[in-house]
Design a protein around this nucleic acid. Sequence first.
DNA 1: TTATTGTTGTTAAACGTTTAACCTACTAAA
DNA 2: TTTAGTAGGTTAAACGTTTAACAACAATAA
Lengths: 332, 332
Amino acid sequence: MERVSLKMIAEELGVSIATVSLVLNGKDKNGRVGRDTAKKILDKAAELNYVPNTFAMGLKMGRSKTIGLIVADISNVFFGTLALYVQEYAEKEGYTVIVANTNEQVKNMERMIKLLKSRQVDGLIITPTEGSEFLIEDLMKDKMPLVLVDRSYPDLPVNSVLINNYEISYKSTKQLIQQGCKNIAFVMYKQNHFHINERKRGYCEAVKEVGLYKEDNIQEVRYEFLKSDIDRAISYLVKKEEKIDGIFFATNSISIAGVKSLCKHHLVLQRDIQIMCFDESDAFYLVPFSIPFVKQPIEEMAQHAIQILLDQIEGRNLKVEKCFLDAELILR
Amino acid sequence: MERVSLKMIAEELGVSIATVSLVLNGKDKNGRVGRDTAKKILDKAAELNYVPNTFAMGLKMGRSKTIGLIVADISNVFFGTLALYVQEYAEKEGYTVIVANTNEQVKNMERMIKLLKSRQVDGLIITPTEGSEFLIEDLMKDKMPLVLVDRSYPDLPVNSVLINNYEISYKSTKQLIQQGCKNIAFVMYKQNHFHINERKRGYCEAVKEVGLYKEDNIQEVRYEFLKSDIDRAISYLVKKEEKIDGIFFATNSISIAGVKSLCKHHLVLQRDIQIMCFDESDAFYLVPFSIPFVKQPIEEMAQHAIQILLDQIEGRNLKVEKCFLDAELILR
DNA sequence: TTATTGTTGTTAAACGTTTAACCTACTAAA
DNA sequence: TTTAGTAGGTTAAACGTTTAACAACAATAA
């Protein structure tokens, strides 16, 4: 893996390294380097298949043109799609993305931040884990350019890109009510995340308004034990005295697991029970009826996150930006 | 974003940079540095929250401890899962992964290789796009450590991790036959990929064996126009003279799109038609009957790919490794 | 006494870039 | 003839790390 350096090009052509650098960076305008010297250099670089050494560049310039993206689990389609778009928009601006997984563990998040810092990232886009407020505060003290996505700590003066969790959740619950549901459950993660609580608040508000609020209709499941907890929750909900006739699932992984679990109880969706999901899934198209869901504007989230982050990195905007995007209710 | 360097630690403690480096790299054994000096350095490093500058290290050492992973589309759950495990195993060995998407375009693959090279990756794991043989050959000429995953060019002496496409495909088709299907279709991408052709060969072999081969039962769809092409293909298959009673979908994206399309025709799966899919999908658990599928050992694929790649990078093994793993037929 | 060995460090070069500052030769104007 | 300007480069330092080679000193051995 013989790597081609400026030096090699310079030696082969009998010019100085500086000249080669100037030409290859396009800084040879206004008469720094002669036309034919420039052409010779360009040709030789192409011939030798020169690629600049980002390490040397980064070391010298103090910027890596790299950003870190920290998510819970890249194999989850929500985060995978987010990663796809983040990379797409980052690349357009000449930035590379390193993706890191936390698996919702704050310990991992800490490790990943350290790793990405050692990789000299110029900034971070993070979906923070539960209990990671202190890590965010540390990063802010460090003046690391930073954008939180999907989740946030509303009291911290930190850039964020969020959706209208409360409103869309309220609206979705209303929709179930309008479809005739009289006893609606809400299944959420047992996590103290602001965005999750906002979704809960939206649900509560909607059911309270029509006098349908019941505390035991709200079921919490643990991330690490999703499958078993969901089964228990669904069992409880479908077997209890006043049977449930509608369920709102608070995230995409809960939606999938929840619907799976419902199937096990031989309940026929849309007849025995109405459901409402967060996030789209291919799965929804496999059933011969439509499953309503909340569609998050993932591409726009990625786009705004990148834009805010790069504005900070490149010093175009130093104010804290809190960006709210509207999710959409899809009924079909 | 004041970055802490060895120099700062050295100055604060009144020792040389070399000493600090030695201690922080654990190279102060056999009496290089005194016990208490070492302790002072360790403490100060922790206090200042020192993280080594990977750029300077990489520049000096000529190795980045970074590998590149090139896939078609990170938001596809197969590649997402692959990425997850590749990262997990890479991290265990102290390597970081940069993921790049090609969207199945050879142009993009070329761009991504260039980008990753400029990032000084020590090696690459690639699921090559169609027509990218010349890029692989270039990399081999460059002596870039390399492992192809999922797909390969069998004539090239290049490391690869593949599944037993022919056998599992043969076996899956046999299964459909055994379930009583008399007229089985095969839906595949219109791509000249070896692994895809192997899957086709497995199907063909199985149907020919029992005299059920019909050329127009093999339908090809284009990656860029998956949805429309699938709809056309399914329409054709279900409406033609001798109606189809079984379909084998050759990849996960085709499976999902295909089942969606079948639903549109109001066909009841497992009654009107038997199907067989490649790769698992959450979707399969939403229907009250079981959908058989081919399960690829994604974690093992990632593990072997990393192991082969690191063996090459670190010079432990210079032979070309062709690794074959067995996919599994899941019936439930 | 002198040499040897061990302990605890330091010095300095190198990795591949970028870029401010400098240099040389030529042309044109005063 | 001098002076200034311009075109077309070159020199050298710096970024933060690693590590071979060196050094200073003390203890021990011959």
